[in-house]
Design a binder for these strands. Structure first.
Length: 639
RNA sequence: GGGCUCGUAGCUCAGCUUGGAUAGAGCAACAGCCUUCUAAAAACCAAGAAGAGAGCUGAAGGUCGUGGGUUCAAAUCCCACCGAGCCCGCCA
């Protein structure tokens, strides 16, 4: 609990301990935790309700829940903001002092500058990896889902006070780039469009050649040359991959996605990290060289030696995983194990770093590098995190499980428990999967999507504010992004998504632009109220002279929603699920809309009524802005 | 063969980890509806604009895949089954 001081949590805590006190007096045995777990928001009676009597009744056997509830409610004192306690159908229902609770919630929400780096989150470092796209094609909508998930999760950790490193893994030694390199050499290198798009389209052509002209052997020879540092081919490969990543990052920036550090697979090999990792694994007997059979000449992890495997790994056909092939090259899993030893600080940071390219948000983007200039940065360390979160497609669950197993086999179970796989479902088209090789992504790139959304957003921007061309463009961009981000993050990560233009460009109902619209409405409302009215409202809240009961259901529902913000953010952190935030943003917007439609703010009859509603509007606007920010959506003032 | 994920309103999805009272949103479909202005003797009709700014309200819509179990209580936990998808490589 990073912020036990927030009013909602304090309320639950004080009710729990009061209940526990009463239960003890009655001779029941129940812990505060148990009591606290029995408390939930009530839909029927009161604002909060406890179901503890049911548990006690079945435990003791001789009383009915309703009787116990009655006994409890007669003894419970009104603590916190509780002003009435009723036993109803076995539940103990707590009715709040709405005025007191509302004032506390508003006060809490308006104190926008709270420090979060307290408690367990303080100084904890987390490395979040996303989206790690092969550097030979543009981001398509599947990669976008990855990047948006990673960005939102990074924002959440950052908000909660963690030190967050946003990391991107560039696989510049894989087959895909090698194939692209062959195309670059043999099919020409005169890009006539954005480099990643051009390269991605050429890659489709390369794959045709592989199937039809049998150039696979040629590519293998090329790959062997390109994998050796310093060769002409390796330099060409680096140039190709670098240009592609730069183009991909333009896309990232257009979506407001940034990184701190970029790690190239070739550096993991060249820097010796892989070698050290293998040494360590061999030394501890985790890895052995197979002398016969299927894996003769390979270095493997032999699962048979590890005893009981986790269920997810019992599906194996073979009881081993190859880390180094018989030709001496390492598999992806081997490099990933080495990299995670780096991430968790089991191996030193011996990388050299250079700045890769400027980012529009002003944050320096570092990259592992073998260049001379990188020497200057060699003192810089990025490794050694408490948590490593990998945003990777669910289809890679198996290698991710092997990765964790390697740490367990090393006798470092505690390290394996610090690695989290945020496994998300694939994005598919109605017509089937998105394939880089087949080119089915063409027309479904992240760039295409943003362009379409922007077209739609531009056509909807109101003329009333007389925005200039560039202002309008900025708003259109924000609204377009909002539609896409909200729609992509709305769905639970584990679910597969069939892409649809209609849904991705949704501007109505429960959508990003709708939430932005509510933020803008609130902003305008506050502006129209004028600074004096706001200042005096706030002053009255602070000195406690605000005379308003907050009795309206719509108003109080909004306040309750505002009050649970911290819990929502922590839940999103605990479960690595940004969709919880999306849900919350949608509810806030909906409740705010219901609030201001039903209750006049500026035209409120009494001064205190107007002041209170202005404060509610302000708190709602702040919280909507915050949750949008966590999702990576701009909270616009006008649209 | 083994493992994982998903199945909730016509559609898209929350809720399930931590069981709690009447299972929630959005879209679609359905039924209604306010004020001001363009506006002119008045009323009515049509169109458009504005409303604190992309109008608002209501009702309807459900075997929570199926069956069993645990429990005072199951969408939620357990088991089995059905359906959809994915993974199990010296690819990444």
């Amino acid at each position: 609990m990073e912020n036990p001081e927030n009013p909602y949590r304090l309320l639950v805590l004080s009710i729990s301990s009061e209940l526990e006190r009463v239960l003890k007096g009655l001779g029941f045995d129940a812990s505060v935790e148990e009591v606290s777990r029995s408390i939930s928001p009530s839909k029927i009676g009161g604002d909060l309700s406890s179901s503890i009597s049911f548990r006690l009744a079945s435990a003791s056997g001789d009383s009915k829940p309703d009787e116990i509830a009655k006994r409890i409610s007669s003894l419970v004192r009104p603590v916190g903001f509780v002003n009435r306690i009723e036993a109803e159908k076995g539940f103990v229902n707590f009715y709040l002092d709405r005025k007191g609770f509302s004032a506390a919630v508003l006060l809490d929400a308006l104190q926008d500058n709270r420090a979060h780096a307290t408690g367990s989150a303080a100084a904890k470092k987390v490395i979040i990896e996303y989206p790690s796209v092969n550097p030979n094609k543009p981001w398509h909508i599947g990669h976008l889902r990855n990047a948006l998930l990673g960005n939102a999760i990074a924002n959440v950790f950052s908000y909660l006070g963690y030190s967050v490193l946003r990391e991107d893994y560039i696989d510049d030694l894989g087959i895909q780039v090698m194939e692209s390199l062959w195309g670059y050499i043999n099919l020409g290198n005169n890009p006539d469009k954005k480099f990643d798009h051009w390269l991605g389209e050429q890659y489709v052509e390369v794959n045709k050649r592989i199937e039809e002209a049998g150039v696979a052997g040629e590519i293998k020879t090329l790959a062997q040359a390109a994998e050796k540092p310093g060769t002409k081919e390796s330099l060409m490969l680096l140039e190709l991959a670098k240009k592609c990543v730069e183009a991909q990052y333009e896309t990232a920036f257009s979506y407001g996605i940034y990184h701190d550090i970029m790690v190239w697979e070739s550096d993991i090999v060249a820097n010796g990290l892989l070698g050290k990792a293998m040494e360590l694994l061999e030394e501890k007997g985790v890895v052995e060289t197979s002398s016969s059979g299927k894996y003769a000449g390979c270095k493997i992890i032999n699962f048979e030696k590890l005893g009981e495997l986790p269920k997810s790994l019992q599906s194996l056909k073979e009881n081993a995983k190859v880390l180094v092939r018989s030709d001496g090259t390492a598999t992806y899993v081997a490099k990933d194990i080495a990299f995670h030893m780096w991430k968790l600080g089991l191996l030193d940071d011996t990388f050299k770093y250079a700045e890769f390219m400027p980012q529009p948000n002003g944050v320096a983007l570092y990259s592992t590098s073998r260049s001379k200039e990188a020497e200057a940065f060699s003192a810089r360390k990025f490794n050694g995190a408490d948590l490593a979160i990998n945003v990777i497609d669910v289809r890679q669950s198996y290698p991710q499980a092997v990765l964790r197993l390697a740490f367990e086999a090393l006798g470092r179970k505690e390290l394996s428990e610090r690695i989290f796989h945020l496994a998300y479902g694939e994005v598919e088209l109605q017509s089937g999967v998105l394939s880089g090789r087949k080119g089915t992504w063409i027309g479904y790139s992240a760039d295409d999507l943003l362009q379409e959304a922007k077209k739609k957003a531009s056509s909807l921007i109101t003329e009333r504010f007389g925005l200039t061309g560039s202002e309008k463009d900025a708003v259109a961009n924000s609204v377009a992004r909002a539609a896409i981000i909200f729609e992509f993050l709305k769905v639970s990560p584990e679910k597969k998504v069939i892409f649809s233009w209609d849904r991705a460009l949704n501007f109505e109902g429960n959508s990003g632009p709708y939430v932005q619209y509510m933020h803008a409405r609130a902003s305008r409302l506050l502006e129209d109220a004028g600074p004096e009215a706001l200042a005096s409202a706030e002053a009255r809240l602070y000195d406690g002279s605000l005379d308003y009961q907050f009795n309206n259901e719509k108003e109080f529902s909004l306040i309750k929603q505002i009050s649970i913000f911290e819990d929502i953010v922590e839940k999103a952190r605990n479960e690595l699920r940004p969709n919880i935030l999306v849900e919350h943003a949608g509810s806030l917007a909906l409740l705010f809309s219901a609030f201001y439609e039903a209750l006049p703010v500026l035209k409120a009859e009494k001064e205190d009524e107007k002041a209170a509603r202005l404060l509610v509007t302000r708190a709602a606007r702040l919280r909507i802005g915050k949750v949008l920010g966590l999702l990576g959506i701009d909270a616009v003032e006008k649209m």
